[in-house]
């Protein structure tokens, strides 16, 4: 059963076509990545899904049908930056927004206290939101999004302003929520941040869907015939290797057709090369995106 089903949505603002034609489905209990560079139309697509914007054409089904007031309490949405009252204390802000999601005041307070504790914000709960750092505000927004334990979580640019420790904490939290059965749509231009998190993705560019499907399959589709190797000495010449290029701290060996990685590994071991790393070269999402855009321009 699909939690979200989007069919050929389009949305323009005056002469600007923010979303031209986008279709995708989000399955229950998965982390879905809505990815693309800035200005790709991701946020507009999200707002159409959430019924914040009416699409010019196309249809959206969310939690099995069109959006209504009852469904609002079943989803959590975190807009990109801000989204909290600035002039009131963090605790009061969270409790108020929690009660609007259907929690009782006590329930909202108890849950907020727990989450503030786990997000290291308990000491700041009596501060006004505007007095918190950007990173703290981002964490507070995440708390607000999950406070009422929604079935569907939609977060726009979740890693903005977070340091590596907090980024990892948010990633762990997303995985934990998925394990508990929540469906998560993450919208970000920081594609490298969600590579290991997402089950499936939609890669958008200029308002259109560029790539869509299972992340591993997309990677396979874009992985060249190559291996990444790192050794403690110079690499000897190996039969079947048609190109060598430096790739971060490794060497990327492009293989001839008919040569498989196993043959290359055997050849290296036969020549007594001490290997520190040997892996099939899988492109990063950034690389896939660039490749897909270039291919799109050529066709």
């Amino acid at each position: 059963m699909h939690t979200v089903k989007v069919s050929h949505i389009a949305k323009s603002f005056g002469d600007v076509k923010a979303v031209t034609d986008v279709s995708f489905e989000v399955e229950r209990g998965e982390i879905f990545g809505l990815l693309g560079p800035n200005g790709a139309g991701k946020t507009t697509a999200l707002r159409v899904i959430l019924d914040i914007f009416k699409p010019d054409s196309g249809t959206v089904s969310i939690l099995e049908g069109p959006m209504n007031d009852e469904k609002k309490s079943r989803l959590g949405y975190m807009p990109e930056e801000r989204g909290l009252y600035q002039d009131i204390t963090l605790e009061r802000c969270l409790i108020y927004l929690g009660t609007l999601k259907g929690l009782s005041k006590d329930e909202a307070r108890q849950r907020a206290e727990k989450l503030l504790e786990s997000f290291d914000l308990a000491d700041h709960k009596t501060k006004k939101v505007k007095e918190l750092s950007k990173g703290m505000q981002q964490k507070a927004q995440i708390i607000n999004t999950i406070l009422h334990r929604p079935e569907l979580i939609i977060i726009d640019e979740p890693f903005t302003a977070l340091d590596p420790v907090n980024t990892q904490m948010v990633k762990d939290l997303m995985e934990e929520l998925r394990e508990k059965g929540a469906t998560i749509i993450m919208c970000t231009h920081q594609m490298h941040q969600v590579e290991e998190l997402c089950d499936r993705i939609l890669l958008m560019d200029e308002g259109k869907d560029l790539l869509y499907g299972n992340l591993n399959e997309i990677r396979k589709q874009f992985s060249g015939h190559a291996v990444l190797v790192r050794s403690n000495g110079n690499l000897p010449s190996i039969e079947g290797v048609v190109g060598i290029e430096e790739h971060n701290s490794s060497t990327k060996l492009n293989l001839d057709d008919g040569i498989n990685p196993q043959d290359v590994l055997s050849a290296l071991l036969e020549k007594n090369v001490i290997l520190e790393k040997f892996e099939i070269a899988v492109p990063s999402l950034d690389e896939i995106f660039i490749q897909a855009v270039e291919e799109g321009k050529q066709t």
């Binding site: 914040i52 949405y77 807009p79 989204g83 909290l84 009252y85 927004l97 609007l100 999601k101 607000n144």
Partner: peptide, 10 residues
Amino acid sequence: NRVMEVLMLS
């Protein structure tokens, strides 16, 4: 503050 987006979904 963009709280409005959150409110409209609550």
